[in-house]
Design a protein around this nucleic acid. Structure first.
Lengths: 151, 151
DNA sequence: GTTTCTGCAAAGCCTTTGCAGGCGG
DNA sequence: CCGCCTGCAAAGGCTTTGCAGAAAC
């Protein structure tokens, strides 16, 4: 588990401690395929041990964010969800405004934009992960059909 | 006020009504330079008339979103803020991860990315407004200096 | 041994909702 | 007039916080 070592190191640098709870939260985040809410992490951790509190999940998530190991996303339904940076490698997301589905895209797609921003605005973009709204292919077809049948 | 006419039209289409409260919220959003939170809109509206409730602000904001006249952003401090689409024209934002400042960029900068996404993923991106994290020029220099003096 | 961390419970904050009366069309 | 909107107040959901005991180092 690549991130555990990194986690441990960054904790040590700051004089912080590695606890079983923190390990479990980290593992849960690692297992989840996509983003997970605090509740989802909590549920997953609870299976292993009933001795972890929701507040600890929140505290650990905040810690991971400070350590730049975690990124946050706002889901279509407004729920906050978390994802480890670096598990799937850096990446970005497309979010369908109709079905709400998130899909992952390669960072290369965004690289030219980053270049442009640096040149034109002097801005060093570090999109841990960008969330781009739009219509996915399936929903686009659905909307096209609806428009037809409505006409 | 370009958006008021559009607002009225879309309200009518749905059999909804134009009330003084809705006008005031719209005006407040129009006057604000950047994004405004519900509280900020409320404060601004309260100056004109003490007879507007916070819940009405929330309801109006939600309505404007349904009507696709308003977009939401999550500020660096986690606060939700709102901005009319089309007042400043379509645009995107750069958000500095250090000072939190938002700056506006032209949509053209993002156009090539939208093309790429369509071609490679069949995704019809409609970024009302994208928020791209990174370091602004000033903070980048500051960090560089700090790194130097630390060494 | 210290200092950090945790669980528990309670508070806090922002946002939403129910309801009776008001008002736009 | 009808049905949408509003203010008020209260509920709601998620997140944070205070505290005393437990645990890492």
């Amino acid at each position: 588990m690549c991130c555990e070592a990194q986690f441990l190191q960054r904790l040590r640098e700051r004089g912080l401690r590695l606890t079983p709870q923190r390990e479990m939260v980290l593992r849960a985040l690692h297992e989840v395929d996509s983003h997970a809410t605090a509740e989802e992490i909590y549920a997953r951790v609870s299976v292993q041990s009933s001795a972890v509190d929701l507040s600890t999940v929140y505290r650990t998530v905040e810690l991971l964010q400070d350590l730049r190991l975690l990124s946050t996303i706002e889901r279509a339904d407004g729920q906050r969800a978390y994802e480890l940076i670096g598990v799937h490698g850096p990446h970005h997301h497309l979010q369908c405004r109709r079905c709400g589905r998130l899909s992952r895209i390669e960072p290369e797609a965004v690289q030219p934009l980053i270049e442009t921003l640096r040149q034109r605005y002097g801005f060093a973009a570090e999109p841990d992960h960008l969330v781009i709204a739009g219509l996915c292919e399936a929903c686009r077809e659905r909307e096209a059909q609806e428009a037809q049948s409505a006409a």
